[in-house]
């Protein structure tokens, strides 16, 4: 497996003086790859994303992004956080435009891109609203728009679609998959939803244990132009789903035994 985009080598992390939350985490990603991380709640998935974003220092091991070791904040990635990090005093438009504005793109140009993205994410009428005026799912989509707007080589997404209804989620799945195929972006995707992980990913990494580490990897061989709607009826899809499910159950027991 090539690792020209991202490589975590034997990463160990924890909070304050507490015990290690994750240890011995090694994983790698190549360009334009879609990788999901699944694992029991509280096992350290968001923590791993924070290491890739450079928001949390590692206790041991290295995180290398595009050949360079990450020491400070990694501004080369787009990060859709698990929590709501929209600025409440800015409109949706301003929030979504923020990564561009911070990179010195002028207002008019930013505005055009924002409009395009809001349309794609079904947020047409919401541009002038403040986050407090949005529903939970609309907020998630605004965050999604913000993390995608400047087309970083790697998107970190922490349970991006958890608050959406089934239909909207399917629509988002399709949009995300076709967008990253077009823009040749890689995605590191955290989810609880096995179906979603298998549907979208080229590879699913299961993590578990205390401290947590990858316990299994499942390759999903459907390629970039998969049929998001039809895939669920494919027998191979169903068996892969079962495989991830079994690995996740095993990881869950590991976490339980250790804690």
């Amino acid at each position: 497996m090539s690792a020209d985009l991202l490589a975590l080598t034997d990463v160990r992390m924890g909070f304050g003086d507490g015990p290690d939350v994750v240890a011995g985490v090694s994983l790698s990603m190549s360009r334009n790859e879609f990788v999901s991380i699944v694992g029991p709640s509280g096992c350290g998935k968001s923590t791993i994303l924070n290491a890739v974003a450079g928001l949390m220092p590692v206790r041991g091991g290295t995180v290398t992004y595009q050949g360079e070791q990450i020491r400070g904040v990694n501004t080369a990635v787009g990060y859709m956080t698990q929590g709501d990090t929209l600025l409440p005093w800015r409109t949706v438009e301003d929030n979504v435009a923020m990564p561009l504005r911070l990179r010195g793109v002028n207002k008019a140009e930013a505005r055009a891109k924002v409009a395009e993205l809001l349309t794609m994410l079904d947020l047409d009428g919401a541009g002038r609203k403040f986050p407090a005026q949005l529903s939970g799912g609309m907020k998630r989509r605004a965050l999604l728009a913000r993390s995608m707007i400047y087309q970083p080589d790697l998107l970190l997404m922490d349970e991006p679609f958890a608050a959406l209804d089934a239909q909207l989620r399917t629509q988002m799945h399709r949009e995300l998959r076709s967008t990253v195929a077009r823009t040749r972006q890689a995605v590191l995707f955290v989810t609880h939803d096995i179906f979603e992980a298998v549907l979208l990913s080229d590879r699913v990494i299961v993590i578990g244990g205390t401290p947590a580490a990858p316990t299994a990897e499942v390759d999903i061989p459907f390629g970039a132009d998969r049929d998001i709607e039809g895939l669920r009826f494919d027998p191979q899809f169903v068996s892969l789903e079962k495989q991830v499910h079994d690995e996740l159950s095993r990881a869950r027991t590991l976490s339980r035994v250790a804690s």
């Binding site: 501004t75 990635v77 787009g78 956080t81 923020m98 911070l102 913000r146």
Partner: peptide
């Protein structure tokens, strides 16, 4: 001030001044 807002700004490329 909400720490996660600051972190989000930093990843988006915000400077101390921003």
């Amino acid at each position: 001030v909400d720490r996660s807002l600051i972190d989000a700004m930093r990843v988006m490329g915000g400077s101390r001044w921003d």
